[in-house]
């Protein structure tokens, strides 16, 4: 059929090239990572040693998996600051339980830690959906309460390597490519992280629940009218973030061989910084797994390299804080640009 008026309506960004770049925030953070690597490598060529690169990748794992969870929440337009508390609670409870029962193993403990995280996450979902509360307040509250409960009711003493379940430590030490790294291999946990990332990507991109997260981040009302079950989506989001946190907590303990109930304090800012750096909009609806992984990589690269370059560690906090602000400024500029 023909119509007298057929205007071609396409994106209105200033130029096709700019529009293309705006749609791909991964390019920005990827470019930043490359520049940082070149600069750091020229200051200290030891940066390019396989052993250093391996340890850098290993340092991505914990922040990275947590970032996947936070990204999912942020895509829906929410925020989560309770995940460090959930991660630590899941780890400490699981390891305490293992010691008490004299159980040693890997699969079952991880399943338990994940379940603990999932249940705690569903509590977040209950408040956010059931009581229509602001996610920041909900997760501040649940995170603080869980931490307090852990220290008060479960225990505040650190479990050191001598009492840690050996199988867990053995799992955390798994590595490969030992010949390349001159004795220090690449942690197998990096593979686990990559597998989880692929899973989250497939979920977001190719399942309807994944698209409902984006839809919710775009417009809750429109999501309802399109027929999405917003309740299911919100519980899924917070449950998933909690489950990832629980699993990560135990992984963290087995990688550092210590279960410290006071661990991971303040890590939420690093993780949120990495997610925002990776191009996820603080207003929801925009972001990708690839971008988030690059954001995590860049943040870990910058903060770890400060150590290599013998810069005082307090500067790490300044770098992280600055990154949150600059990256959030960049993404909100981008969002305005797209909607211009």
């Amino acid at each position: 059929m023909s119509n007298t008026l057929t205007p071609v309506l396409s994106g209105r960004a200033d130029s096709p090239r700019l529009a293309w770049v705006l749609k791909r925030p991964e390019l920005g953070v990827g470019g930043l990572a490359v520049v940082a690597m070149v600069v750091i490598g020229s200051i200290n060529p030891a940066f390019w040693d396989a052993a250093n690169l391996f340890s850098l990748l290993r340092a991505n794992v914990i922040t990275g998996i947590l970032a996947l969870g936070v990204m999912i929440v942020m895509l829906s337009g929410g925020i989560d600051v309770s995940f460090p508390a959930f991660a630590i609670a899941a780890m400490y409870l699981t390891i305490k339980g293992m010691i008490a029962l004299g159980y040693d193993g890997v699969v079952l403990p991880f399943a338990v830690a994940t379940m603990i995280g999932l249940l705690l996450g569903l509590i977040n979902g209950l408040f956010v959906y059931g009581l229509r509360m602001i996610p920041l307040i909900v997760t501040l509250g649940t995170g603080t309460a869980v931490r307090g409960l852990l220290l008060g009711a479960v225990g505040s003493s650190q479990i050191n390597i001598d009492r840690m379940p050996p199988a867990l430590i053995g799992f955390g030490r798994l590595e490969f490519l030992r010949s390349v790294g001159g004795g220090n291999g690449l942690s197998t946990m990096v593979v686990l992280y990559a597998a989880l990332a692929v899973m989250v990507h497939l979920m977001l991109r190719h399942t309807l629940i994944g698209r409902s997260i984006f839809a919710l981040g775009g417009s809750e009302e429109a999501a309802r009218r399109a027929g999405f079950n917003v309740r299911t989506t919100i519980f899924f989001i917070y449950g998933m973030a909690g489950a990832l946190a629980g699993c990560t907590g135990l992984l963290h303990g087995s990688m550092i061989w210590v279960a410290n109930p006071r661990d991971m304090v303040g890590i939420e800012l690093d993780v949120i910084a990495a997610v925002v750096l990776g191009g996820t909009s603080i207003f929801g609806g925009r972001g990708s797994v690839m971008g988030t992984m690059l954001g995590v990589f860049t943040l870990v690269l910058l903060t770890n390299s400060l150590i290599i370059m013998h810069i005082d560690t307090t500067w790490q906090r300044i770098v992280t804080g600055s990154i949150v602000i600059l990256a959030a400024a960049a993404t909100s500029w981008r969002d305005r640009r797209i909607a211009a």
């Binding site: 119509n3 309506l9 396409s10 209105r12 749609k23 909607a339």
Partner: peptide, 19 residues
């Protein structure tokens, strides 16, 4: 069916109101 040319890959935010 509507007989208009719309770029399917454009994000909706980038369209003018009429789009």
């Amino acid at each position: 069916r509507l007989g208009v040319a719309l770029d399917l890959d454009a994000t909706v935010d980038s369209l003018p109101t009429s789009g």
